[in-house]
Nucleic acid binder design. Structure first.
Lengths: 129, 129
DNA sequence: TTAGGTGCAAACAATTTGCCGTGTT
DNA sequence: AACACGGCAAATTGTTTGCACCTAA
């Protein structure tokens, strides 16, 4: 019943932790394949999902699911030009938001806040709104 | 080049508009099939996507994409028990949020705010936190 | 008449699962 | 030894696309 140690799982976790770009299962797989040639994509999916269930990783949903090793509440920014998903500092209203939602009759356990727009790099190029 | 009138598209739009549960393509298809037996799921996907591009509908992403006829900024609540996705009144901090994110160096064009927890109905049943 | 729209089926892409051998405890 | 884990491939599921026909303008 209890969980056992697994070399693969630890490397998968470290990969998500070290990368700051909230990788997808495929991205993790591609990165690890060279050093673990027998690794299978199914294993990556299974472990990411398992760690997400346990709260060791956070899932960020979208057309393709991304994973985040930062589980404390924070905010994301998605660039609609390059597609990158990056972290933002916590919003000043974080707790106030949960309270406001709770006031509408819901039991709130958390929230997800994602901003959309142009990241500094893409904005610097030619991207007229 | 210009868009033409299409009976199917209008019924698809009305369906999303009338339902308040942010239906998926499949849900729209199931609802319309009885009255339009020759309707195809591909057509539903094509039209939903087209209307989303035009801004006539909003896309809410997740493992399965949902569609929303309310395109003015507002907030969603997702129940983690029954899976329902419902509207919340606008949060009091809506514009302040965009300003806070912009202060971190991004060109913000919008945001998505989704709360998670138990909806009133599920909370009323047996769902200890 | 002439694009745009539709139905249908095949193609795709992301993710899950069954099976069976392997590794941790 | 027991049972979680991993590899592999097949199966599911959500979504897109090619093509020939239909229809609004």
């Amino acid at each position: 019943m209890a969980q056992r140690f697994s070399h693969q799982r630890e490397r998968i976790y470290q990969t998500v932790l070290e990368r700051r770009d909230h990788p997808t299962a495929e991205m993790v797989y591609q990165q690890l394949k060279p050093e673990m040639p027998r690794l299978s994509l199914g294993t990556v999916y299974r472990n990411l999902q398992q760690m997400a269930r346990e709260g060791r990783l956070a899932e960020v949903d979208g057309p393709v699911t991304r994973f985040d090793a930062v589980t404390r509440p924070h905010t994301h920014f998605q660039c609609r030009f390059c597609g990158a998903l990056m972290d933002l500092e916590a919003m000043p209203y974080d707790e106030a938001l949960d309270r406001a939602a709770a006031a509408q009759g819901y039991q709130v356990t958390g929230h997800s806040l994602v901003f959309t727009g142009a990241c500094p790099r893409c904005a610097a190029q030619e991207h007229p709104a």
